[in-house]
Simulated assay, not measured.
Amino acid sequence: MFVYFLTVQILLIPTFNADRNFSISSSPICESASDCPTGFSNCTAVSELKKKRCVNARQICIGGKPELPIKSCARSRDCTKNVTEYEGWCDFETKFCCEVDPLSRESPMCPDRVTPLYGQEKCEEYEEGMIYSGKSEQKGGFCYKGYSCPPKITRPKSLKFGTRTFRTNIDCDVGDKIASKYEFMFCHNETGNLWVMGKLNMNGDEVIKHWTLCHLNKDCLEGQVCVKEDICRYRCYDDPVSSFFEIE
C-alpha cells in the first residue's frame, strides 16, 4: 500500500486598501527573512508597527528602494524633518517613503536629473515600452516612462526648458535657500513645492523677471518669488502661480 503526500505551497498575497495601495499591516510578522513565505523578499521594521513585517520591496517602492524603517506618507515632507536636504521621495502610487538604490542601474529621476520620477503623477495613455508616450495633466508636462516630469531636460552641455511653469512634488521650505542643483526653480509660499519657472506663467502670459537679487522669497516684493537661475544667481520674478488660480 502506497501513501502519497500532497505538498501544497501557500503563497501569501498582501492586501491592498480601497485606493489600491499596499497595506503593509496585513503582511506576516517576522523576526528575520527566513520567517517570510514565498512572495516576500525582506523582513524589516515599519515605523507605524511594533513588530517587523515581511515585505516585497517593489510593492513599497515602484523605483528605488524603501527607506528604513518603512514609513507611509502623503507627500515627501512626511518622510523627513529637513525637506531642504532630503533627496528621497514619497512614492505617488504606493504612498511609502523611498530613496535611490545605489545598486540599481536605472535612474529613478526625471530627465532633468533632480526630480524623483516615481514621486510624480502618472501620465494618461502611456504605452509600455514607449518611454516618451502619454499625456500629462499639467500643461507643458513632459511624459517620461509613464510619469509627468518637468518640461526641462539636462543634456551634457545645455539645459533646455519648456514653455510652461510646472509644479513638481518636491517639497521645500520657504525659509531655506534653494539648493544649487535646482536650476530655474522656486519654492512656492502656499504649496510648499518646488516649481520650474517656464517662459510663460499659468495664465499663458510671458513671465516677468526683475533685476533684484535674492536668497529667499521674503527678499522680493509681495507677489514675487525668488528663482534659482544659475550656480551663483538668484533673482526675483513675478509669482507665476498664485495670481492666476486658487491654490488647492
Results as ranks from 00 to 15, higher is better:
residue 140 G to L: 02
residue 32 S to G: 06
residue 48 E to K: 09
residue 168 T to R: 11
residue 5 F to W: 00
residue 9 Q to Y: 01
residue 134 G to H: 06
residue 180 S to W: 09
residue 35 D to H: 09
residue 193 N to M: 07
residue 108 P to R: 14
residue 13 I to P: 00
residue 75 R to Y: 08
residue 56 N to M: 12
residue 29 I to R: 12
residue 103 L to N: 08
residue 137 E to V: 10
residue 99 E to N: 02
residue 51 K to C: 04
residue 6 L to P: 00
residue 143 C to F: 06
residue 45 A to S: 13
residue 95 K to C: 04
residue 39 G to A: 06
residue 118 Y to T: 10
residue 142 F to T: 14
residue 32 S to C: 10
residue 85 E to A: 11
residue 1 M to V: 10
residue 98 C to M: 07
residue 134 G to M: 05
residue 134 G to T: 08
residue 224 Q to T: 04
residue 5 F to Q: 05
residue 85 E to F: 08
residue 31 E to S: 11
residue 78 D to Y: 05
residue 145 K to G: 09
residue 181 K to D: 10
residue 27 S to Y: 04
residue 218 K to G: 11
residue 52 K to G: 00
residue 181 K to V: 15
residue 88 G to S: 09
residue 124 E to N: 05
residue 141 G to W: 00
residue 182 Y to K: 05
residue 183 E to A: 13
residue 167 R to A: 10
residue 122 K to V: 14
residue 110 C to G: 15
residue 210 H to K: 09
residue 51 K to I: 10
residue 206 E to W: 09
residue 218 K to Y: 14
residue 239 D to G: 01
residue 166 F to Q: 00
residue 235 R to Q: 15
residue 193 N to A: 08
residue 61 C to K: 04
residue 54 C to E: 09
residue 237 Y to V: 05
residue 185 M to S: 07
residue 179 A to N: 02
residue 10 I to Y: 01
residue 47 S to P: 01
residue 202 M to H: 06
residue 42 N to E: 10
residue 229 E to A: 12
residue 119 G to A: 12
residue 188 H to K: 10
residue 56 N to V: 14
residue 136 S to F: 05
residue 173 D to I: 00
residue 131 I to Y: 08
residue 46 V to H: 01
residue 64 G to A: 03
residue 5 F to K: 01
residue 107 S to A: 13
residue 242 S to G: 01
residue 77 R to P: 03
residue 243 S to Q: 13
residue 28 P to V: 02
residue 173 D to Q: 02
residue 211 W to Y: 11
residue 23 S to E: 13
residue 210 H to F: 13
residue 13 I to S: 06
residue 118 Y to W: 11
residue 104 S to D: 07
residue 140 G to Y: 01
residue 239 D to T: 00
residue 134 G to N: 04
residue 42 N to T: 04
residue 143 C to H: 04
residue 71 K to Y: 07
residue 81 K to P: 00
residue 36 C to A: 03
residue 67 E to L: 08
residue 176 D to N: 14
residue 219 D to M: 08
residue 230 D to V: 12
residue 166 F to V: 02
residue 161 F to L: 15
residue 107 S to K: 07
residue 140 G to S: 03
residue 238 D to H: 14
residue 161 F to I: 15
residue 42 N to D: 10
residue 183 E to G: 04
residue 134 G to Q: 05
residue 216 L to T: 13
residue 126 Y to I: 07
residue 114 V to Y: 12
residue 159 L to A: 05
residue 89 W to I: 10
residue 100 V to Y: 01
residue 1 M to H: 04
residue 103 L to H: 08
residue 48 E to N: 09
residue 1 M to K: 04
residue 46 V to L: 03
residue 134 G to D: 08
residue 111 P to H: 08
residue 160 K to P: 05
residue 24 I to W: 01
residue 105 R to T: 11
residue 186 F to M: 02
residue 81 K to E: 14
residue 235 R to F: 08
residue 27 S to C: 14
residue 45 A to Q: 12
residue 35 D to G: 06
residue 204 G to S: 07
residue 138 Q to W: 10
residue 42 N to Q: 08
residue 73 C to R: 00
residue 210 H to W: 12
residue 229 E to G: 03
residue 137 E to F: 07
residue 57 A to G: 05
residue 73 C to I: 02
residue 9 Q to L: 06
residue 213 L to G: 05
residue 53 R to G: 02
residue 214 C to S: 08
residue 23 S to G: 07
residue 238 D to S: 15
residue 83 V to E: 15
residue 208 I to G: 06
